Amino acid sequence: MSETRNITRRSALKFGVAAAASLPFSSSLFGRATAQEQVKFTLPWIPNGSSYWPMIGKEIGVFAKHNIDMSVARGFGSVAAAQAVASGQFDFGMVFAGGNFLAAARQLPIVVIATVYYDPIMGIALRADSPIKTPKDLEGKKLGTVPTSAESPFWPAFAKNAGIDMSKVSLVQVDSKVIERALIDKQVDATTAVGTSSIPLIAAMGERPRFLPWSRYGVELYAGQIVTRPEIVEKNPELCQKVVDSVLGCYAHTLREPQSSLELFAKVMPEVGLTRGGMESARIAQGLTQLATQRPEAIENSLGWSDLDKIPGMIDLIMEFGAPKDAVRPDPATLVTNRFVGNVKLTPEEWAKVKENTSEFAAYLGES
């Protein structure tokens, strides 16, 4: 499962490849370094409003505070990013839960050490004037999908939970580069989508989409998670703590200062500001991501907290709809831990401000 597109994807591709190629190799993770420890960190996809925050760690002084020197590279989808961490190409990564759980089901060495936000916002994208109001209204309509996208494997799960007769829906395979345009041009009636990618793109085309999130129908997965390998947790837990506190510290900064954080993002990745609609796309993606962070896990505990009671059900979802037949169900107890979270918290007043700042984005999802 790979993350879908962002408005900056084409212009940023050259940047991403160059950044990945220029990453320095990290020093030994298992020794006690007196200087800053070098860390290689991968994102799940091209940096965008839903994933950029580790890129501003140097600018806001978070990495220096924790005595690490983190190099951040773009990813090529969550499955590939999880594999890159498991293989040792990177020390840590921010990877969507689906990719992490699938990697574990393939018996790759990976462990989740924090959950950054709690809903990948998979769902159905619709035009504003669409007559489709409920999931059942999809029957008799054309539904566009990208078979290799993050959400596509879970369409049957949503259809089942929402009472949709899949035989009455015409599933149309669409190229990832044109799927939003296919919706706007009425080549299809609706599309499967990841909201943080498709909603900003559609908005950049001058349309205001509507969206039906699948999480309201029991298709629940966590979204961005910080991952590493079990051997690093075992041999260098101090570094794991530094990375979790640093990355969550970056994210907390974006929650408290969303606009200035986006400006820093454009500073470290100028392509964002140069691309038509790039900053607005990043702003919408960031707002939707911050909506998906306002959950009891983070508000009542701390940023990064995972509800361990929810993990088995998410693994079951992956095993039924996303994993190959030879996959082995991973052990939830060894796959996800809260050992390193708890240090980065927002006050009730700060959470209230986050809610206020994200209220406009809630409308895309039909929330008040």
Rank of each mutant, 00 (worst) to 15 (best):
residue 7 I to T: 12
residue 18 A to S: 14
residue 20 A to K: 10
residue 22 S to A: 15
residue 22 S to V: 01
residue 25 F to T: 12
residue 26 S to K: 02
residue 33 A to V: 03
residue 33 A to H: 14
residue 40 K to Q: 13
residue 44 P to W: 01
residue 53 W to L: 03
residue 53 W to Q: 08
residue 58 K to A: 07
residue 59 E to R: 03
residue 60 I to F: 07
residue 61 G to D: 06
residue 62 V to L: 10
residue 72 V to D: 08
residue 73 A to Y: 02
residue 75 G to C: 11
residue 78 S to M: 05
residue 80 A to Y: 03
residue 81 A to R: 00
residue 84 A to V: 03
residue 84 A to C: 05
residue 85 V to K: 04
residue 86 A to W: 01
residue 87 S to M: 09
residue 90 F to V: 08
residue 95 V to K: 00
residue 98 G to S: 14
residue 99 G to V: 01
residue 103 A to F: 02
residue 112 V to W: 00
residue 114 A to L: 06
residue 115 T to K: 09
residue 116 V to H: 04
residue 118 Y to D: 11
residue 121 I to T: 05
residue 123 G to W: 01
residue 124 I to P: 12
residue 125 A to G: 15
residue 126 L to K: 02
residue 129 D to T: 07
residue 129 D to F: 00
residue 131 P to F: 06
residue 131 P to T: 13
residue 132 I to N: 07
residue 141 K to H: 15
residue 146 V to P: 09
residue 150 A to I: 13
residue 153 P to E: 07
residue 154 F to W: 12
residue 155 W to K: 01
residue 157 A to Q: 12
residue 162 A to E: 12
residue 163 G to Y: 13
residue 169 V to D: 11
residue 169 V to F: 12
residue 170 S to H: 07
residue 173 Q to G: 10
residue 174 V to K: 02
residue 175 D to V: 08
residue 175 D to E: 13
residue 188 V to Q: 08
residue 190 A to K: 02
residue 197 S to G: 15
residue 197 S to Q: 15
residue 202 I to E: 07
residue 202 I to C: 04
residue 203 A to H: 13
residue 215 S to E: 10
residue 224 G to M: 04
residue 226 I to N: 13
residue 231 E to H: 04
residue 232 I to S: 07
residue 233 V to W: 08
residue 234 E to N: 10
residue 235 K to I: 00
residue 239 L to N: 06
residue 242 K to R: 15
residue 248 L to S: 11
residue 250 C to H: 04
residue 250 C to L: 06
residue 258 P to R: 02
residue 258 P to L: 03
residue 259 Q to T: 14
residue 261 S to I: 01
residue 269 M to E: 09
residue 270 P to A: 13
residue 272 V to P: 12
residue 275 T to D: 04
residue 278 G to R: 01
residue 283 R to Y: 09
residue 285 A to E: 11
residue 285 A to S: 15
residue 287 G to N: 07
residue 297 E to G: 05
residue 297 E to N: 11
residue 300 E to H: 11
residue 301 N to R: 14
residue 306 S to H: 06
residue 308 L to Q: 11
residue 311 I to M: 10
residue 314 M to I: 04
residue 315 I to S: 13
residue 315 I to C: 13
residue 318 I to C: 11
residue 319 M to N: 10
residue 319 M to V: 09
residue 321 F to T: 00
residue 323 A to I: 02
residue 328 V to L: 08
residue 332 P to A: 10
residue 332 P to K: 04
residue 339 R to E: 15
residue 341 V to C: 11
residue 343 N to P: 00
residue 344 V to N: 07
residue 348 P to H: 08
residue 350 E to G: 09
residue 351 W to M: 08
residue 353 K to S: 09
residue 354 V to L: 03
residue 358 T to P: 05
residue 360 E to Y: 05
residue 360 E to F: 06
residue 365 L to H: 02
